[in-house]
Design a protein around this nucleic acid. Sequence first.
DNA 1: AATTAGGCTAAT
DNA 2: ATTAGCCTAATT
Length: 635
Amino acid sequence: MAPVTQLPCDCNGICRACKVKPAEAKKLTCKTCATQWHVDCLSCRPETMEEVVEWECPDCSSLHRDLPVAHEKTLPEGAGDLIAAIRAIEADGSLSDMEKAKKRQWLLSGKAVLEEGEEKRREGDGSNILDILNGTLKCSFCLELLERPVTTPCGHNFCLKCFKKWVGQGKKTCAKCRAVIPSDVASGIRINSAVVNAIRAAKASKASSTAGETWRVYQFVHNQDRPDRAYTTERAKRKGKANAASGRIFVTVPQDHFGPITAENDPLRNQGVLVGECWADRFECRQWGAHFPHISGIAGQSKRGAQSVVLSGGYIDDEDHGEWFIYTGSGGRDLKGNKRTSKEQSFDQTFVKSNLALKVSCLKGYPVRVLRSHKDKHSPYAPREGIRYDGIYRIEKCWAKQGMQGFKVCRYLFVRCENEPAPWTSDDHGDRPRRLPELQELEEAVTVIERQEDPSWGYDEQDTCWRWMKPPPPSNWRVRRIDSEETERSWKIIKKSKNISISESLLRGLKCLICGQVMASPVTTPCGHNFCKTCLEGTFAGVPFLRERTRGGRSLRSQKNARICPACPTNISDFLQNVQINRELMTLINSLKEEAEQKRNSEDLTGENSSGDKMEEVETVVEEDGEDTDSDEEE
DNA sequence: AATTAGGCTAAT
DNA sequence: ATTAGCCTAATT
């Protein structure tokens, strides 16, 4: 092959070699740097599906040849399954080449690939927030929006892969300003997650704003008159959240809502509750609708089923294997004396109340939201602090057995069936149907209950994703009935709060970790944390750079004082010697502020004031289309 | 109206 | 570390 100049596609997907936008099926993605290439313009094309999966662009493959860079891993975890899955797609005669390409891409990216027309429609529409990001947060290597952004000590932002490729070529200076990048920074660079979050939120808001036609006004409004945070009443007289009352609920789902909480139920952020989202405590978790009861571990009603559970280590019989776990029912404890800490069981659990609710969800195959709390000290999957949403699980079996404390407990086998990857894996895809674990304890189970009918939440082999296979059970909660005028009015309010929040919620994520204000002159540490320049420097004001050491009267060579990042245990002493402002981030913040300001002004002009448009709660009609005939449960 | 709940903080 | 003593809110 003649060594012709080979070029990848640009940020608009146009091949830099032939200047044509290749069809999806004609695009190849480099496994190392994730750039896209036009197959027809490559001098050497992959032949088999395995080669497609493992394909490296000419830049990256030449890199190995030139210098033996230590490569993390040739095959990602679970790549064997992936290749098998791709073989299966290839062998499927019912699919067109286009469909095959789409399925392949879905597997590789974990996301649905848009139709080309759909893609165009999206591009021409919606928020310019993403444009702002595109304008300020482009990687100067690949010219794309930053992917896994990292920031050099000199304040320049690159994709992690592009940065690694650069230093892997033996470069020791910043590609933008030629400032020296110390080798410990190059090897220990950390992702700037504030920037990741900003980009993710902007993408999510764009995606949902373009789904304009299907935008639905959900009129569930509870606790709207309450403050934004949990609070203690005068009577409670305690600090913190010991005796707290719930703050307002931000999402528009009713409390008996089954399944994921999607963007359309999230008028503030328009992203829904994402897998991996964390909250400080049960009150905050409640405010985002992931789990409503603020003490109970099970959210559910015996006649309808259970919507969510929290694993917090309260029952010693539990066992957690991440993608599946065994949950213990509630009850069996003597809670007399108003104590909430008794872990002593004093009577048998039975399938009543919330235990029955879990059983209903098992029989129906409903999706159950699962949260893990830091209080679970036993499980390696539990978060270190706060409470985390881990996605949708199904209860595949339930039974009763003699518990470890000598009384009967209800037991539930939960198995994950979620389209998003779990917070603990590095996989970029969600779950696929898996075989149930073989459980020893089932042999001593008193009664084993398994689902007979088809599950409500199941796996769609065609679309390769989990979804409702039957419509979700309608809510029994009171719904406000609103007329068309009011619909129009509340639509405006939601749209308005949405528009404000896109830029403002992005700004909220760009606050200094020291002063809590949106950063004026942001600096990014090599460990990936952002502060105001003045705040960070102020923290170490008065701490000398060098420390005199003495031992037994004689003085030793003076040593550098450790200066620990205010957000993590990294020593950022070297970084502090010459702190550079992250100017791209500063530009972004300024643009977002401007955008938010403009939005506010334009809304003032249209004469809408927030106080007049407030959605008051009105006593309402019960929308009773719910069947109360869930008569298939026995004691 | 009573009961129950896998939380939270401060005091041992 | 452990736990008494609170308060809130949903289900029954």
